[in-house]
Design a protein around this nucleic acid. Structure first.
Length: 378
DNA sequence: TTACTAACCTATTCAACGT
DNA sequence: ACGTTGAATAGGTTAGTAA
């Protein structure tokens, strides 16, 4: 499985690996995984930019048909065209605002608002809506791959699907979120490699202003992804500083076909009848050795009382020394059982058929490292 | 290191359309 | 007229890339 993961990461077969590939530094591995998740970002070349600029000069608000035409011409997706125009309208508006500010300071007059062009409205058929709703119920935050798949399935442009999901999320808040408890995560700059999912967004108006941070390993509609406890140094969590699901929880969209979830998991918390409980003795050993109050202060104890929530991953192995490494020898076995205990309900698994690679990475200051992956058939 | 940029998000508002 | 809902906008974050 390690080979599979690396092959996936490196995009080439084991035969072509460099000697260093297999022994990649673990933080490097994590970096690669995160990069992989975001690699779908497309850099426009100069020609494309010039064309877009020319069109923007002619019409900064192209309609769907025009965007579709441009997309074909430039060989990029319509949603990318949309994003580009959005961005540049914003930039222009900002520039105009600054300009107007100067003018109004001298003349004291407001600029009339430009009337926007009429909107066309897409009409979805019942079957298209059914497909979208089904997808929405499985995953409220589909990545580009899923949206493209849905686009093929329904014949609806991907950008419309994107908008549809946005509207749907806004108008159909996740009922599971209503009862969530809050978990203030701590400062954890001491452990930069440790990553733990901390959030689903505050997606609805009803939750606006809530500072709630939801623990790791989100339910199935938000696949767990790169986990970042370092987010614990959150500023005041405004709605806009809340972690974005596709970025924090899921990396950039769906990623490659094989779902790769990475996280630095600590075997210290297990879900139980009463919520979550600590799991001795490993936790005890780790905690006892933790001297730095910054690391200890409020390391989020997972919320109690919601046994349906997956556990927060809230420790790193930062201070493990050689004496603690014995468990690593049986890591795979241990990790299997731990996962089974943590996540007993099948609905936590995002997919139903394909195996999921769980890659656990530990990095020690002393350079001790270990990568373990586990394939869990569902 | 920093600025820029693409992609993503939520919240809000506009507007088309069916009732 | 009103409710529903697709589309657009505003304002934000993150992370890759280029300077």
């Amino acid at each position: 499985m390690v080979d599979c993961a690396l092959e996936l990461l490196l995009g080439r077969s084991p035969a072509s690996w460099d000697p260093g590939d297999r022994s990649m530094d673990l933080s490097c591995t994590l970096g690669l995984l995160e990069k992989e998740a975001r690699r779908r970002r497309i850099i426009l070349d100069q020609n494309q930019k010039n064309t877009l600029r020319a069109w923007f000069e002619k019409n900064p608000n192209p309609d769907l048909a025009t965007r579709g035409h441009l997309a074909k011409e430039l060989g990029i997706s319509e949603s990318q065209i949309m994003t580009w125009f959005q961005k540049h309208r914003k930039i222009r508006k900002q520039a105009e605002f600054e300009c107007c500010l100067e003018e109004s300071q001298t003349q004291g007059q407001d600029k009339p608002r430009v009337k926007e062009a009429g909107r066309s409205r897409t009409h979805f058929t019942k079957s298209q809506i059914d497909i979208l709703i089904e997808a929405f119920e499985k995953n409220r935050f589909p990545g580009i791959a899923t949206r493209e798949k849905l686009s093929q399935q329904t014949g609806i442009p991907e950008s419309r699907i994107h908008i549809w999901f946005q509207n749907r999320r806004a108008r159909h808040p996740d009922p599971k979120q209503g009862t969530q408890t809050t978990a203030q995560l701590p400062q954890n700059s001491q452990c930069p490699a440790l990553k733990a999912t901390i959030g689903r967004p505050a997606p609805s108006k009803t939750l606006t202003g809530s500072l709630s941070v939801t623990p790791a390993l989100s339910p199935p509609h938000t696949s767990p992804g790169p986990l970042d406890l370092s987010i614990g140094h959150q500023k005041q969590l405004s709605r806009t500083t809340a972690p974005q699901p596709s970025q924090v929880v899921q990396g950039r969209g769906d990623g490659p076909n094989l779902s790769v979830y990475t996280g630095h998991l600590s075997p210290v918390i297990t879900p139980g009848e009463e919520g979550f409980r600590t799991r001795a003795p490993l936790r005890t050993r780790i905690q006892e050795r933790r001297q730095d109050p910054r690391e200890n202060s409020g390391l989020a104890e997972p919320p109690l009382g919601d046994s349906t929530q997956a556990p927060v991953v809230n420790h790193c192995f930062w201070d493990l020394d050689q004496r603690d490494l014995g468990f690593l020898q049986n890591w795979d076995e241990w990790f299997q059982s731990m996962l089974a205990e943590w996540i007993p309900a099948k609905e936590y698994w995002p997919g139903k058929s394909e195996p999921h690679l769980w890659q656990v990475q530990l990095q020690q200051p002393a350079g001790v490292s270990h990568v373990s992956d586990n394939t869990l058939q569902q």
